[in-house]
């Protein structure tokens, strides 16, 4: 198989698997940049997947082909409301942010499965009838080579994810709002003295992470899983968290890391079709993203520096 052919079979799958991770990782970037550690990304994705699937199942008849898009919007809204719990606990109640994030993970899964059993009478929902379908993007898919690689059999959600990464970069680095948000995560007291409302900024950041996590979870559910059960989201949120750190808390870095993880995952999925990878035991490819993250953090790819005030509750009047 020629190299181009291999790329043509890997890239669509890599994009497909990366999209949910990109969304969620962007959420992580917002939250952690404001100084709130968000280990609850997993739970926010679970909530997003649950809401996305339930909305899709309930309103598929009403909205027809627009249902998946409405589903991810509703999932983003509900997840951002859900993430308020994390904000209240870690910003206002000064809870340990990691612990509160763990609680978010437990709670989302418990609530999701509880309500699934309540509403559908069994451990998983039905399959959705209106998922996202892969499409040939008009015009772009006609470009030779690149068209086949990126725009044939692709999902619009993947491009939305990549576009949002650039939007997030613009917001964080080119607007006053972004500067305020980052300053709150680096030195909340200095930000406070300059008239920035630290609590408000952190609440906004956490809710943004909820919205992005909801997008990620619902996109995963509506492109890959197609139903909701306790095993729909298993670790994608933690992968996204790894992408945040791997990407050095930068939106474009997180985008790159998420694309890389998606690429590594797709390798292990289609390795049997690629001559020189077919003989490699699959386990090496499966663990590759995790091992590489550890290598990266251990300093092979440079030191990752967290926002200074990440994880510390801000208490007015303390130094």
């Amino acid at each position: 198989m020629a190299f181009i052919d291999i790329l043509q079979s890997i890239i669509p799958i890599a994009l497909f698997y990366s999209a949910p991770l990109i969304f969620t990782a962007l959420g992580g970037v917002f939250s952690e940049r404001s100084g709130v550690v968000n280990i609850g990304l997993e739970g926010l994705m679970v909530m997003g997947a649950f809401v996305g699937i339930v909305f899709n199942l309930t309103f598929a008849d009403v909205f027809g082909a627009a249902t998946p898009w409405l589903s991810i919007i509703v999932a983003a809204i509900v997840s951002s409301i859900f993430s308020l719990l994390h904000a209240v606990a870690s910003v206002s109640f000064r809870a340990d942010q990691v612990v509160s994030g763990v609680a978010i993970n437990f709670l989302a899964l418990g609530l999701g499965v509880f309500l699934t059993k309540q509403w559908y009478g069994k451990g998983q929902t039905d399959m959705v009838t209106e998922p996202f379908y892969s499409q040939n993007i008009p015009y772009l898919s006609d470009i030779p080579i690149i068209g086949d690689m990126f725009f044939t059999g692709a999902y619009y959600t993947s491009f939305l994810a990549i576009a949002l990464a650039f939007v997030a970069w613009f917001v964080l680095y080119k607007t006053a709002f972004g500067l305020q948000l980052r300053s709150v995560g680096e030195h909340p007291m200095a930000a406070d003295t300059n008239g920035i409302n630290v609590y408000r900024m952190r609440y906004i950041a956490v809710m943004l992470s909820g919205a992005f996590g909801g997008l990620g979870g619902s996109v995963f559910a509506l492109t890959i899983a197609l139903n909701f059960s306790s095993s729909t989201i298993v670790g994608q949120g933690f992968m996204s968290l790894a992408a945040v750190i791997f990407g050095k808390w930068h939106p474009l870095g997180a985008l790159g890391a998420a694309l890389f993880f998606g690429f590594a995952q797709s390798l292990s999925i289609i390795s049997t079709n690629i001559p020189f990878l077919a003989d490699v035991p699959k386990v090496y490819l499966t663990i590759a993203p995790y091992v590489l993250t550890i290598f990266a953090l251990a300093g092979f790819i440079g030191r990752a520096e967290a926002p200074k005030a990440n994880g510390q509750p801000y208490i007015k009047g303390t130094r």
Binding site: A95, V102, A103, I104, F106, L107, L111, F114, K117
Partner: peptide, 22 residues
């Protein structure tokens, strides 16, 4: 009652312990 109720209870207990400040 679905057994997941207990998962919710456990999650809330963690929340309350974490928010012991309040």
């Amino acid at each position: 009652v679905p057994s997941e109720l207990v998962e919710i209870v456990i999650a809330l207990i963690i929340f309350f312990v974490a928010s012991s400040y309040i």
